[in-house]
């Protein structure tokens, strides 16, 4: 059910060998760059000719020169506080709802890159990293209680801090929708679902669709049965402005990457 076809899928789909759909992406080697794969035509190891069988290798990727400060930065956040516990078993990726749809979405690998502070690698995945649907299958099954679902939130913070340019281009919609949510949640203390829907449609340049039959039918139905008006009556909690100020103050004073404004 993959929604995204990676170019490499075709090139590497087993070299003519019959591969079940499930196995395709294993053969397709997404997370290994082509430059890192070494293939020998004829290979003799210790006097044994292994040509045709053992002739594909991955160039050693041992990374010992990594930046610890990055790891500490993530550990300080609420969402990423358990990054130290991950032992890279891959249960999260195996459980993930999104991985079968977008095979480059690989929570285990993202956590690894965060542990090592490997920004160069992370940058390659900005276009899929935001697709986590927050289903917590990974967290349910993770044997080390790393809470990978929330590690994906930490990942978003990291991306926001280190790749502001990409966020502005590739993640524009995601950021804008988040902003709509936050403005409503913090600003008003309650969520206006109708406004959320229409503003998000506008932001994604789909205002026209709002006038299409499906949308019109739904809006008409809700106006007719009175639900549209209940949205207008939703209101705000009393004295919410005090909570709002307290929350904003808290966020301003934070000295972790959770403080988006200051870009600490």
């Amino acid at each position: 059910m993959a929604l995204e076809k990676h170019d490499k899928d075709k090139e590497n789909s087993g070299g003519g060998r019959p591969v079940a759909e499930k196995g395709e992406h294993i053969v397709a080697r997404h997370l290994i760059e082509d430059d890192n794969i070494k293939e020998e035509k004829n290979l003799v190891i210790d006097g044994v000719d292994v040509s045709g069988r053992w002739n594909t290798f991955i160039i050693s990727r041992v990374d010992s020169d990594f930046d610890r400060s990055f790891f500490e930065e993530i550990k300080k956040t609420v969402a990423g506080s358990r990054i130290n516990r991950c032992w890279q078993c891959g249960m999260c990726t195996a459980s993930c709802t999104v991985t079968p749809l977008y095979r480059r979405f690989n929570p285990r690998a993202f956590i690894y890159m965060m542990q090592l502070g490997n920004l160069k690698e992370l940058k390659k995945y900005i276009d899929v990293a935001w697709r986590c649907v927050g289903c917590y299958k990974c967290s349910q099954r993770c044997p080390k209680q790393v809470n990978p679902a929330e590690m994906m939130e930490a990942l978003a913070l990291v991306i926001k801090k280190y790749f502001p340019e990409e966020v502005k281009t590739k993640l524009k919609l995601d950021e804008e929708v988040k902003k709509i949510y936050e403005d409503m949640i913090i600003g008003h203390g309650r969520l206006d679902l109708a406004k959320l829907h229409t503003s998000a449609m506008q932001k994604s340049g789909r205002t026209k669709e709002l006038l299409g039959k499906i949308e019109r039918d739904t809006i008409f139905k809700m106006a007719k049965d009175g639900r549209a008006f209940s949205i207008l009556r939703l209101g705000k909690p009393h004295n919410w402005s005090r909570s709002k100020e307290a929350i904003e103050n808290y966020l301003r004073k934070l000295n972790t990457i959770e403080n988006g404004e200051a870009g600490v």
Binding site: A79, A154, Y181, E182, I185, G189, S243, A246, Y250, E258
Partner: peptide
């Protein structure tokens, strides 16, 4: 006088995400 729970959209905002439901 309830307020919104945060609907999962505040999770990267530290303790603020917990204030919402706990209020």
């Amino acid at each position: 006088d309830y307020n919104c729970c945060g609907i999962g959209e505040m999770k990267s905002k530290g303790a603020a995400s917990m204030y919402m439901p706990l209020r």
